[in-house]
Design a protein around this nucleic acid. Structure first.
Lengths: 339, 339
DNA sequence: CTGAAAGCGCTTACAG
DNA sequence: CTGAAAGCGCTTACAG
């Protein structure tokens, strides 16, 4: 493999001149620049990333920490990963993907060894073990998901509380008086998935305020439990006219369950989910939904990390940014009537 | 951040001794080893990955090239990615994930700049633009998926031809005389997805040999086209008693379609899919299937690349390895009867 | 506008 | 069993 020394020799200049000609960091005579460019072409020269990283203390790599947990629906995570990866590439960064179940350990490893310039954390838990590591790391980072303590962290998340209110308001406005909310499995909450109760508690409060009876239940994440759970809920709350689905696996399973019971939405049941547009397309989900906007959140997180990486001077205060929920109407809700 | 120089100073030894004490590459007195270990702990020392890569010409990073194409079902790719990522970690490698649509360009970039020690390619096309790049790269690589020309490449794939035969045999043995095969969208074939016709052609040949009338049709990859297509197929071939689904999106959509038409499997229709166990679980697919074994293929590919990386001496011939299809019985097939 | 030199943080022959 | 030194391939002050 050709080195910059080879380029310099072929172009008949010093290594520093060759380097500057390539980086454009100082003025170079047209003639020299052309000779260098020519040498680069001739040799097929590409700078060695490791050497550059060592010299500049910048790897142009971002760590992406994902966890695939049993009680979460894996395909939903993919959306976030792709969002992050695509934006990173636009901004000139590569992605080191870490799927290790021992997130904290891996995080420490990739930051301490300076493999990455910054880090993006997905599926953040309330009391995430990775956060202490992150706070002592010297690289900037951003979270997608809200932990209990945001001190010293940049955090991006959907405003789940507002999402809960929007869902309830939407059905209340249509005259629904009894509604069921199916959340993620209870285990997700125990593990620190605060978004579950953030949405649920706000929904409950709003329901109370609007005079709506809201039954909040935990769902399941894997089949066949999901299907059973949905049937169970429909059996237990026969007079409910609305269904809020804060659970991707349940949303995916719902069409078959409704069909089996001879129910149609919105005629028999008004349904609102919470998933991205892309997700709805992939699984052909016919329900209106609060857009979880994974691409947008991924984009915000990456941008923020890159800003901090590239402007080490500015010590801007850390931000906690909630994006407002948007209801994508797929005509799965209607005026309430009894089932 | 502490360097090995700091460690050496604190331990009162030379940098080389500190380095050897850590790598274990030469005998070190117990006392010195302890002093070095103590210094490492005290300073929280972690070797700088870039510097090590420069010195050893090994990054311990593997490139993982994935493409998310419109006409493929994204969640199916995830299985392969996780398989690769997990095995890589077991073997001490990190994953640089590249999702760039310009696979060839990205591949050249990460190999030429020596960001990776080796490369794993997913969704390989018959005439894949990335292959010429791979052949000139100095790092070893492995493909999951069979291209037209395997020269100089290590290739791992499911034996799709045999899979087609197994599917047909299974139904033929049960007395089915007319069967439909739904493949991936035609566009996948045009793009070079040879696995589609490898399975189809073998299925057609076997069907002819067994006296089975096999209708081979292309499916769709996205809703709502998938559902329409399935209904269409069931309308067009009303006397078929078996359905072979070589199309993840169609498999996911099938339960709802059958239910809507009042059909049950296997009573009304014997169904065999082709997807992994994990996929079946995630989507609650009740159909027997040829296991696509993404984890196993990922594991084989990574192992092979790592073997080549770590034994640069042995110039073993390249391998093209097909794994034999296994039918996972989920009781969705039965003796043929007319619909 | 260009060059010689130092330095980034490691590893590993070479010497003793 | 240990150390001094060279080298991996870049970048970037320092000098002219």
């Amino acid at each position: 493999m050709a080195t910059i020394g080879d380029v310099a020799r072929v172009a008949g200049v010093s290594r520093s001149t060759a380097s500057y000609a390539l980086s454009g960091k100082r003025a170079i005579s047209l003639e020299v620049r052309q000779r260098v460019d020519e040498a680069v072409r001739e040799l097929g020269y590409t700078p060695n990333a490791g050497a550059r990283a060592l010299a500049t203390a910048q790897t142009h790599v971002l760590g992406l920490l994902v966890q695939f947990l049993e009680d979460e629906f894996a395909p939903a995570m993919l959306q976030y990963m792709l969002g992050v990866s695509n934006v990173a590439r636009e901004l000139g960064y590569d992605i080191l993907m870490v799927t290790d179940p021992d997130g904290a350990g891996s995080l420490e490893r990739i930051t301490d060894s300076r493999m990455v310039d910054g880090v993006i954390l997905l599926n953040v838990a309330d009391d995430d073990l990775r956060l202490p590591v992150l706070r002592t790391a010297s690289q900037p980072s951003a979270l997608v998901g809200l932990p209990a303590d945001c001190t010293g962290l940049d955090v991006f998340d959907l405003d789940f509380a507002e999402a809960g209110r929007v869902m309830v308001d939407h059905l209340a406005d249509l005259g629904h008086r009894e509604v069921v909310l199916i959340s993620q499995p209870e285990h997700v909450v125990e593990r620190g998935g605060a978004y579950v109760w953030r949405l649920r508690d706000a929904a409950l409060a709003q329901a109370a305020a609007r005079g709506v009876l809201l039954h909040a239940v935990y769902g399941e994440a894997q089949q066949p439990a999901v299907g059973r759970c949905l049937n169970d809920v429909l059996d237990r709350f026969p007079t409910s006219t609305g269904l809020l689905v804060h659970n991707e696996a349940a949303a995916v399973a719902l069409p078959a369950v409704l069909q089996a019971r001879g129910l149609t939405s919105p005629a028999d049941l008004s349904v609102i989910g919470r998933y991205s547009d892309e997700f709805a397309r992939t699984f052909s989900l016919p329900y209106s939904s609060i857009d979880s906007a994974p691409d947008r959140l991924g984009r915000m997180a990456v941008r923020q990390v890159v800003r901090r990486i590239e402007n080490p001077g500015l010590h801007e205060p850390h931000v906690v940014r909630f994006i407002p929920p948007e209801l994508v109407d797929r005509a799965s809700t209607a005026q309430a009537r009894s089932r």
